[in-house]
Design a binder for these strands. Structure first.
Length: 284
DNA sequence: CGGCTGCCGTCCATTACTTCA
DNA sequence: AGTGAAGTAATGGACGGCAGC
């Protein structure tokens, strides 16, 4: 499966989308996306999208805003089902578009695999990793339960912990490398791309920040520990030196061994300088 | 202008669940 | 098969910033 999204290349790209994520070494799988609009342009685009009832075809036909997807059936359905219609129609942004699509997609496609499951199976299976099947099984269940989850948001039931697929995690990781905080638009975009709820993306970033912080704390702790050890060693060395000097002083009076030294302070710069007797003799 | 209130986003501690050894 | 540890998704509460009144 190849999913390529190219959205203009102008002024202020959203870098986390701009950067092609390395989801997998497998060629079958790949997102190629770039959002290059300025914030204002994106805002107006979003407004336009909402305003015209979310006509995806119109938006995507913008010469500067192109989405190349090898999922014609998917976007046909998106368009036909009016999924992209905005809040005016009461679309819950926390609801997965794909899930909303699922019911109708099964009508459109007689295959038992709805648009959702087909999309997701491709998404997991092509990576060929050992977790593929397990991921799919879990995800199939997730997909089927998600609709109800999203409808009622786990109302009454115990929370379900959903494991993100490798690809989803990798993509989120790539995004996190770009910025560890998301604005609402980025969150929505990511959620859409990864077929997750915005809340899940949000939570993932929260937890990721927490993990980063924890790791950084561990690193800092380790560094401070090393500093402490170094200073302790230095302290020990200096103590030893002082002891040796004291011992030397008691055996042989200091003034017999060393030239007389005076400390003087410069009144202007307040620097302390040492002047030994020998220096004085030679006129330094 | 300052105070109050509601909304929203983030952080943090914690829980609940999954995976693995 | 059972179990504990580790990892992590999800939750709930606290808090701060901001806009509207």
């Amino acid at each position: 499966m190849e999913l390529g999204l190219s959205l203009d290349g102008s002024s202020k790209p959203i870098s986390f989308l701009e950067k092609t994520p390395k989801l997998s070494s497998n060629d079958h799988l790949g997102f190629c996306m770039g959002l290059g609009r300025s914030q204002e342009k994106r805002d107006s685009l979003e407004a336009e999208r909402r305003g015209n009832g979310g006509d995806l075809k119109r938006v995507f036909s913008d010469p500067h805003l192109q989405l190349h997807l090898r999922l014609p059936w998917l976007f046909d359905n998106l368009h036909e089902t009016g999924l992209s219609k905005g809040r005016g129609r009461g679309l819950d942004v926390n609801r997965l578009p794909m899930v909303a699509l699922a019911g109708e997609a099964t009508v459109a496609h007689s295959s038992p695999n709805s648009a959702v499951s087909s999309f997701q199976m491709d998404f997991w299976f092509r990576n060929g990793n050992s977790r593929g099947k397990r991921d799919m099984d879990a995800e199939t269940e997730r997909g089927s339960s998600r609709a109800s989850d999203d409808d009622e948001d786990d109302k009454g039931s115990s929370r379900k912990k959903l494991r993100l697929s490798k690809e989803q995690s990798a993509f989120l990781e790539e995004s996190f490398k770009e910025h560890n905080n998301l604005n609402p638009k980025q969150k929505l975009a990511l959620a859409k791309q990864l077929n997750l709820r915005p809340r899940q993306v949000e939570v993932w970033f929260q937890n990721r920040r927490a993990r980063t912080k924890l790791k950084q704390t561990e690193v800092d702790c380790e560094y401070l520990k090393r500093c402490c050890e170094t200073l302790t060693e230095e302290n020990r060395r200096l103590h030893k030196e002082v002891q040796e000097l004291r011992a030397l002083k008691t055996c042989q009076p200091f003034y017999m061994q060393l030239p007389a030294t005076t400390l003087t302070m410069c009144p202007s710069c307040e620097r302390v300088t040492t002047t030994s007797a020998t220096d004085a003799k030679i006129g330094i």
